[in-house]
């Protein structure tokens, strides 16, 4: 029964203890290094783009159209084009995705058809964006005769981000505790009343976060828009759904692929504008998500 007195004292590290501590320390160093790679890369990238791009970034640059001369060129057309595409894509994809998510979570029977739809949505989220470009070209540009219009571009990008928003919305809807639904049903609420008055308001921050992140992906897309024939040299802003357009990533791609350092500089300036837009959208998404998690805690 008696325990040797030395075993009761603290600070008696054996070789095995020291080895364990050393391993723990090693893992800490590894984790730190892994994190640093991402952050340092981002920093280097940002600084590099800023050095190149800040010089040309002024009101003139934002307000001028494309030009053969780098010092006169600006991003008015792609900036407006991006705004059009952003707004239209949101207007098309948000109601469709949320509707689909509500159906799948609150209405759809739990059977094999629902499961197949579910698996397909997950797979669609992984399809390369260029494939959606081909689809957009075949269906919207040619099939429906919409041409290389803002509408074609927004429809194509909407299809591209639909699965992402659907899945994010489903997750947000699923996170609403079932006890809330039960309570509402128990008071004589219809399915739609339960969904509209309890489930959706609680899921909305999550749904909006998913939508904004998906939209910021759409704003950065180049390939599908090249595919449907969006132009990069446009001297007007879109006035309606059927007008031609260009967007920031396309303009950047176009300038970068030209020879000559002056065009590379204005490409860097355009990248800065695009980055500010994307980071703003992501910041809004994070704020919404934090607000959402605070609500849960109560």
């Amino acid at each position: 029964m008696s325990v040797p007195e030395s075993a009761l004292l603290l600070g008696q590290n054996t070789a095995r203890d020291r080895r364990r501590q050393w391993k723990g320390h090693l893992f800490w160093v590894f984790s730190l290094a892994a994190t640093s790679v991402g952050i340092i890369t981002l920093m280097v990238l940002l600084v590099d783009v800023m050095i190149d791009g800040l010089g040309r970034l002024d009101a003139d640059f934002l307000n001028s159209y494309a030009s053969r001369f780098a010092d006169r060129a600006g991003i008015r057309a792609p900036l407006f084009g991006t705004a059009w595409i952003l707004g239209l894509t949101a207007a098309i994809s948000f109601p469709l995705s949320v509707g689909a998510a509500i159906y799948l979570e609150e209405y759809a029977p739990q059977n094999w058809i629902t499961r197949i739809i579910q698996v397909n949505i997950a797979n669609l989220a992984g399809v390369p964006s260029i494939v959606y470009g081909i689809l957009g070209l075949a269906v919207f540009v040619r099939g429906m005769g919409l041409g290389r219009s803002v509408l074609s571009g927004a429809l194509t990008l909407s299809i591209l981000i639909l699965p992402v928003i659907i899945m994010a919305s489903q997750e947000a809807i699923r996170a609403v505790p079932d006890s809330i639904r039960q309570a509402a049903y128990g008071l004589g609420a219809t399915r739609w009343q339960v969904t509209q008055r309890q489930v959706l308001p609680m899921a909305l921050p999550g749904i909006l976060t998913g939508t904004i992140l998906a939209l910021s992906r759409a704003v950065g897309e180049t390939a599908p828009l090249i595919m449907i024939g969006a132009l990069s040299f446009i001297a007007f802003t879109p006035q309606g759904l059927t007008d031609q357009f260009t967007v920031l990533p396309l303009q950047i791609y176009n300038w970068i692929s030209r020879p000559g350092a002056d065009f590379h500089e204005i490409a860097a300036s355009a990248i800065l504008v695009l980055l500010v837009l994307l980071l703003t959208m992501n910041a809004i998404a994070i704020i919404l998500r934090n607000r959402c998690s605070r609500m849960r805690v109560g």
């Binding site: 505790p177 006890s179 809330i180 039960q182 309570a183 509402a184 128990g186 309890q198 609680m202 609500m295 109560g298």
Partner: peptide, 8 residues
Amino acid sequence: FQKPNPFP
């Protein structure tokens, strides 16, 4: 219900 489940 068993657990209090007020709406938020």
